[in-house]
Nucleic acid binder design. Structure first.
Length: 596
RNA sequence: UGCGGCGUGGAGCAGUGGCAGCUCGUCGGGCUCAUAACCCGAAGGUCCCGAGUUCGAAUCUCGGCGCCGCAACCA
């Protein structure tokens, strides 16, 4: 029975183009899950968008002397285009600056307020002298009172590692304007997290399938849960939906509280665009639905503590939830959090120019080799280092040599000697053995993907490709064909059938090359539709661009494929480009590093 | 400072108590359909160091050393 699967993908921040570390953490893993579940026939809703509020956007805008809207309009386009080129099959990749999103955020805010989960309180805060806006701790620098380090940040000192309060710093100054910050009292709305401590603990303790670090880290946080400010003194963000704030432009809902609501608002947006405005409920108010949240590890707290608290508090909701007669919104089922990717041994950092932008990467290399690398050697369970040497090696020695070459040699032989899918004669034990191994791959690879063991899943699929290469080596169809044409036909039928099925097993990981194999074997249609842009209306005659797709139109299915004897084969084209080792030095120089 | 991770043959990793494995590279052989790709075989490791528990430890405990990450007002 088709199961509703919500894939909630972390929202990339629209401060600038994203680098490959970002898509390693949220994009590629999420897309593998989504594509797998669609092939299984499940109803998948993969949502996300650009996260467009918050202090860094306003800083970037001030620096350029433009309105924040200019910044987010620019980078939401750039980021969405990068994700499209990578083949990430979002059903709705939207933005947090839509009118609908603000309505949903405000509905949650008001509902939590009405239920007593949000309260107002005066608090001390740091402000930028020049703009009067909230100055986040990270934007304050000064001398550490403990060790005397001069570059300590407002939240911690990198030199001695101690946690700090910005008011502790000696000689503090703002990183934005260089001025000393102003400390004064301000009133904020707070989410009363301690009210959720008991239900959160009960829920998290039951999530024994979570990765151990996610679960223990989250349980740890519960011990010292404190109310958390829901608002900031800033003019850029979702407005506070209370009459007294209607005319005020100096206080907004905090960017993170609005960003996580995006999972819900994007689902509503998707449903409306499909002309089935209630369809989102099948994912959110349906206990049979499964919710995967995919992110980098720096986001765990927002997905295991804060967003679940908001969902628990909202319950069956206000305006969007539909009230007491509806079931409560579902909590996350799987928290798929990645570790970090470093770049040639250095931490990715947009501000320090360390990193490889997704767009730049795709200008020079194809998407599947990048997807392959990020899954096979990415930060699934521990921090990993991206190196160009390893990228070239993975591409040439694994992707090209094992899978690309298997497809190429099989198709070349079959095409040359038969021109079409040859007839299967009486199978021998070796034939049965390899067919059974590939057939078993559906269960093995699928089970690993569903439990988010993506690296192992890919490894299993590649091992099957290696096994088929081995089969060809033993059967030697190129030699057999000269003396026993029927036997050669059988061998090639078996090998082609294996390739046809491996194409499905690899499709979640390598969608572009699987489509190519599909065409090469003479099949009609596409395995899965490709993501494309569309305009969604947003009320008041406005509209915005989203990334979406008609993925259900594809013919791909996660089940055994049988080839039609006599189906014409196309002349084979190599699936992947072998990379010259010189690209390693070229890329290192491009990054300003000395080749080894 | 707290929490956590990592340290296994040249590279990247798996392996949580019982003869040390995988992919790649290297060397030798085979094959020649295939993008010098494919197949077979071999060499190569004091499993970071020290102590302990145990019949037995890469695996458990304690103590070191080294590297890395996170710490909820960066997003």
């Amino acid at each position: 029975m088709p199961q509703p699967i919500l894939i909630a993908v972390a929202w990339p921040y629209a401060q600038g183009p994203r680098h490959i570390g970002h898509v390693a953490g949220f994009g590629v893993p999420a897309d593998i899950l989504a594509r797998y579940h669609r092939l299984c026939g499940n109803r998948v809703l993969m949502v996300s968008g650009t996260d467009e509020h918050g202090t860094p956007i306003t800083v970037a805008a001030d620096r350029e002397g433009v309105d924040p809207q200019v910044i987010v309009d620019r980078y939401s386009q750039v980021i969405a285009e990068d994700l499209r080129r990578l083949g990430l099959s979002y059903d709705c990749f939207t933005r947090t600056t839509t009118r609908l999103h603000a309505e949903v955020v405000q509905d949650l805010f008001l509902t939590l307020l009405a239920k007593g989960y949000v309260f107002r309180q005066a608090t001390m805060g740091a402000f930028a002298a020049s703009t009067g806006r909230t100055l986040p701790d990270r934007y304050i620098e000064g001398t550490c009172p403990h060790c005397g380090h001069r570059g300590a940040r407002g939240d911690q000192c990198e030199a001695c590692g101690r946690q700090l309060d910005p008011s502790d710093l000696i000689d503090p100054r703002s990183l934005i304007d260089g001025q000393p910050p102003v400390f004064r009292e301000t009133e904020h709305f707070f989410l009363d997290l301690p009210q959720f401590a008991a239900p959160l603990r009960q829920w998290i303790e039951a999530q024994t399938h979570w990765r151990p670090n996610v679960r223990s880290f989250s349980l740890n946080l519960l011990d010292e849960l404190r109310p958390r400010a829901y608002t900031r003194d800033i003019g850029w963000g979702v407005a506070i939906p209370l009459p007294e704030f209607a005319e005020r432009s100096d206080k907004r809902i905090y960017v993170w509280f609005d960003a996580v609501v995006g999972y819900l608002s994007a689902s509503v947006e998707w449903a409306r665009a499909e002309a089935t405005p209630e369809a989102w409920r099948d994912f959110w108010q349906n206990p049979a639905a499964r919710h995967y949240y995919v992110m980098g590890k720096d986001n765990i707290v927002f997905h295991t503590i804060i967003w679940p608290s908001m969902l628990l508090g909202y319950g069956s909701g206000g305006e969007f939830g539909g009230g007491p007669e509806r079931p409560a919104l579902e909590l996350p089922d799987d928290i798929v959090s990645s570790e970090f990717l470093t770049m040639e041994s250095r931490k990715f950092s947009s501000s320090r120019g360390v990193g490889i932008l997704v767009g730049d990467f795709l200008d020079r290399y194809d998407p599947d080799p990048l997807r392959y690398y990020l899954c096979a050697a990415g930060p699934e369970s521990q921090d990993t280092d991206f190196t160009w040497a390893e990228f070239v090696r993975r591409n040439n020695d694994e992707l090209v040599a094992t899978w690309g070459n298997l497809v190429n040699r099989t198709c070349s032989l079959a095409q040359r000697h038969f021109g079409a899918v040859p007839a299967l004669g009486e199978p021998q034990p070796a034939d049965r053995s390899v067919l059974e191994a590939v057939a078993a791959g559906y269960g093995v690879v699928g089970g690993l993907i569903a439990s988010a063991h993506l690296k192992s899943a890919l490894g299993e699929a590649m091992a099957l490709a290696a096994q088929v290469n081995q089969y060809l080596g033993e059967q030697e169809p190129w030699r057999v064909v000269t003396r026993d044409r029927d036997r050669a036909a059988t061998i090639l039928n078996v090998a082609l059938t294996c390739v046809d099925n491996l194409k499905v097993l690899l499709a979640p990981f390598l969608p572009f090359s699987s489509e190519q194999v599909h065409r090469q074997l003479g099949h009609e249609g596409v395995l899965t539709g490709a993501p494309h842009f569309a305009e969604h209306p947003d009320g008041g005659g406005r509209s915005h661009r989203v990334l979406t797709g008609e993925y259900g139109a594809g013919v791909g299915r996660w089940t055994w494929q049988t080839l039609t004897v006599g189906q014409p084969l196309l002349a084979p084209q190599p699936l992947y480009k072998k990379l010259d080792p010189s690209v390693v030095d070229d890329e290192l120089r491009r990054m300003g590093l000395e080749p080894a």
